[in-house]
């Protein structure tokens, strides 16, 4: 950005050589300023990432002995709902028999469960983050008997896989282990 308006005082250097040297000086000065500003900005921005206590937040243990066949529980993990569903033999059957080829996000049911009767998924629609309905027997469960997201009409099957609607991916499976037959630790 140069401007040719009336300046007071003589320019600091005359001639071509002085010009190059001055440009180099300006450039190095500007570079220092830019690097300094960037280095100062980095920790400020990084401080907005999850803090150590947030990252260390406890994993949760869920007692699944109280969930009757065919029903589901919603538990909170990292501020998000996790669906724990006690699937009926028919639902398991349906999930297993689905032809992988018809799926948008191709994943066999066996990759999504550790024990077939327990389906554990993060209850966040992969479209834009709403919580799908279908946890209660009385709620709408969509065309495939799993969950239905009322925000934009995504249908999930009994394995939590996307079957119809705008969502691009299956419901996510959180990391979990069976501590015992009746207790699952999520996270």
């Amino acid at each position: 950005m140069t401007a040719d308006s009336k300046t007071h005082g003589a320019p600091p250097e005359d001639g071509h050589e002085g010009e190059t040297r001055r440009d180099f000086l300006y450039l190095s000065g500007a570079a220092f300023g830019a690097v300094g500003a960037a280095c100062a900005a980095a920790p400020l921005i990084n401080s907005l990432n999850p803090a150590k206590d947030t990252l260390a937040l406890a994993s949760i243990e869920v007692d699944i002995s109280q969930i009757p066949l065919g029903e589901a529980r919603t538990v909170m993990w990292r501020g998000k709902p996790v669906f724990v569903r006690h699937r009926t033999p028919e639902e398991i059957e349906e999930a297993k028999d689905t032809d992988i080829a018809v799926l948008g996000d191709k994943q066999p049911d066996s990759d999504r469960v550790k024990k077939p009767e327990w389906l554990i998924v993060v209850g966040i629609c992969t479209h834009l983050g709403c919580v799908p309905v279908g946890q209660k027997m009385t709620e709408e469960r969509g065309d495939f008997g799993g969950w239905f997201c009322p925000c934009h009409g995504s249908h999930y099957d009994t394995s939590g896989r996307i079957r119809k609607g705008p969502a691009p991916k299956n419901l996510a499976v959180p990391p979990y282990v069976f501590v015992s037959d009746t207790v699952v630790r999520i996270g």
């Binding site: 920790p43 400020l44 990084n46 401080s47 990432n49 803090a51 150590k52 206590d53 947030t54």
Partner: peptide, 13 residues
């Protein structure tokens, strides 16, 4: 204290 201990670079800020 959480800023000082847990927030990333919080002590510096």
């Amino acid at each position: 204290e959480r800023i000082m201990r847990d927030v990333n670079g919080g002590w510096l800020i």
